[in-house]
Design a protein around this nucleic acid. Structure first.
Lengths: 234, 234
DNA sequence: TGACAGCCGCTGGCATGCAAGATGTTGCCA
DNA sequence: TGGCAACATCTTGCATGCCAGCGGCTGTCA
């Protein structure tokens, strides 16, 4: 089962940062709802009710309400007074908007690299390994393993840049992107292998301290993935 | 009195979007707290209590709690379980981090302009007028008028780009920036006049459809303001 | 005098209850 | 048959209450 808290929950105001704690009811509700929002089990346009979710989780409405508030702040939900919580519809331009925002951040961070960074290299190498393993194991069920590792790879580039504000924004972008790609992502083994190869090239450029080249690779890599997804959505 | 909801509250999950409504208690609490967070009356490092604020506003803890949650999601507050809400300390690098993020977005949007845009021109002209009036009236008390108009000016450039995700992120950045500049912003009339002149140049470049030039102007304008603020903080 | 154990008061977490807005439905009347 | 008013029922908004952590204070003992 995909876990929301894999890569995403380091983001922003996500509750439950401090791990090891009885896990508050709010956190439970937040994770539960976010997971469903991201993987599409709560489809865009659906109206959620606090009551229903509270009953389902065996908690009261209060923490559910708090979770909804947080999710609204992340742009995943829209709260209508005394009506309910609407799963934010995906606008026709959302995928494009997200790509632009993401590219802006990620390319900037990649391009800012001017010297090799052992910590970054190690992080990238590790996620690429994870991607290869995911590809090898590919039993369809495990497909999300690749998704997780992919997120980690790209995130590492942003994290390495060391601007927590950008990192936070970036995390939020990827959450929303994940929701879109959950709709339709027909990825063949060949495509995934191709992605991994591109990751390798990016890592190599960064390892050589060549931010400019990394930046260009990141741009074409992301645009290609975007085009692919666009095709799948149609 | 400076109003939080001037430029900022169009941002993200700010409650109370739909105006004309009895104004929910949550919104009241949110605005009240945010205003104080941004103008420094709730200084960084201070511990806030739900009870206290609730008493002060004559409402119950519930809506205050919700407001705190939202403010945490915006990065203005840090909630510690059973301890209280800490006004997020301003990290030593925060101003730099914000500038970088803001510049990234704003320069990108300015640079993307390739043709004159009457709507944008009108918006820019209007805020520049407002800035001039603020300068003329300058009674110190009205100084925030300039701040508001300044925000509108820069925001208009981002809005014109038409990517709601970027706009939203940008709004959040400016909120946080406002909190920092509330600390110390020694701006002389001369400086303000200088800013207005620079705004005029930027507007002119955009009006001519010359995004590249506007981009450069925006960059140097923001960096100059940043340096100035840095000096004031020391 | 210093260190530590225990207590006390304060904090927020969450369940609950009540009230009011919004909606869809029903039944009356023209 | 079409329009509208009153109702039933859903929703959330918010107040309240109880309880469990957490910290500071105090008193005791070495």
């Amino acid at each position: 089962m995909p876990s929301v808290s894999q890569a995403g929950s380091r983001a922003a105001g996500s509750p439950g940062r401090d791990a090891r704690r009885p896990v508050s009811a709010t956190t439970t509700a937040y994770r539960h709802a976010k997971e469903r929002l991201l993987d599409g089990r709560f489809p865009a346009g659906q109206l959620l009710s606090e009551n229903e979710l509270a009953r389902e989780l065996g908690i009261s409405r209060t923490p559910v309400r708090e979770a909804f508030l947080l999710l609204e702040a992340e742009g995943l939900l829209e709260l209508y007074p005394r009506r309910g919580a609407l799963v934010t519809p995906i606008s026709p331009t959302e995928a494009d908007d997200l790509l632009e925002a993401r590219l802006l951040t990620e390319a900037h961070c990649a391009g800012a690299v001017t010297a090799p960074d052992p910590a970054l290299d190690a992080a990238l190498a590790e996620t690429i390994d994870a991607q290869r393993r995911a590809l090898a194991d590919d039993d369809r069920v495990e497909s999300h393993l690749f998704t997780v590792a992919d997120r980690e790879f790209h995130r590492a580039i942003v994290v390495a840049h060391g601007n927590p504000i950008l990192t936070r924004q970036y995390d939020a972008l990827r959450d929303r992107q994940q929701r879109i790609s959950a709709l339709a992502t027909a990825r063949s083994r060949e495509r995934i292998a191709q992605f991994i190869a591109e990751h390798g090239e990016i890592a190599a450029a960064l390892g050589a301290g060549d931010g400019q080249r990394a930046r260009e690779l990141v741009e074409s890599h992301l645009r290609a993935a975007h085009e692919l997804a666009r095709g799948a959505r149609r």
